[in-house]
Amino acid sequence: MNWSRKWINPVLDKEFRLRMRTPRSAFSLLAYILVLGLIALGFIYITLYLGNQGNQPFNSSAGRMMFYVLSFAQLILIAFMAPALTAGVISGEREKQTLSMLLTTQQSSATIILSKLFSSLSFMTLIIVATLPIYSIVFLYGGISLKQMIFIFLFYLFVMLLLGALGVLFSTLFKRTMISVIVTYGVGLCIFLLTGILYLFAMSIVQRSYYSGPPTTGTTYSWVGYILGLNPAGALISLFEPSFSKQAFLLQNGNLSSDAPIQLWQEFVLVYSVVIIAALWISIRRIRPVARRKHSHPENGLPGVKTSTGAHS
């Protein structure tokens, strides 16, 4: 067990214990698998019995469609779950009045923040892994490669990391868990919905000006596609269908042979990696008060007057 002592720091160890000792964790896992299982079974039922009057067998294209449906359902479930699991990690400790004692230990701010995030992500990963048997139904019918599946799961991890980092940030900034949860869901909603709506809106304007303006022979792709790259659903589809990125940037009747400037999922990962790093950096800076270093006055060599306006908890 030496490896665990080496790699699992006290905060992580405590988080794991506390997380797995509450019945809520088991219930969340059960509820999640139930919802996703019902979606899978519902899809099979609709496809086999309602859509085709029971005549058509469930083939690989239906399997592919089911994979898409499950993947989207999973993405939405993650969007609901990640803020709930992370937006209270610091403010919850503050409300339970345990934070001040944790902050007076030798654990660094980075250890506390990253361990809290990692433990929440571990639990979410456990839930995602627990849904694998449901995905195995897809493999009965084929149409999906293992590589695609692995990519989708890595993408989920990234989305969880993004929402988790935002949850931890707001949990550090706001004293009340309730406010932190609301703000995290609000920002999540912007990432999931606002970017999509903004893309459709901007695209329709650009399309209109493209057709009403003089005919051009220049570029046929538009900057508007970048907006869709900020949307998790857009990025997810670009993982299913690599040609989707091209379509997102293209104006109608554009030249299909021209390449997209960047794959949507690549843009998603690049942009939000910066967001994740910024969110975690701010959280680490703000969890404890940080004093400015004293500067020596060259004239007299005395320490300068120190005034600090850092956060306090």
Binding site: N9, P10, K14, L18, T22, K96, T98, S100
Partner: peptide, 24 residues
């Protein structure tokens, strides 16, 4: 430091609680 109001991790046993802080 012992604050005026403090909470404890209810789901930990007494020794685990002290082990956590000791390790910290």
């Amino acid at each position: 430091y012992m604050p005026d109001f403090f909470g404890v991790y209810d789901q930990l046993k007494t020794t685990e609680y002290l082990h956590f802080y000791g390790a910290s």
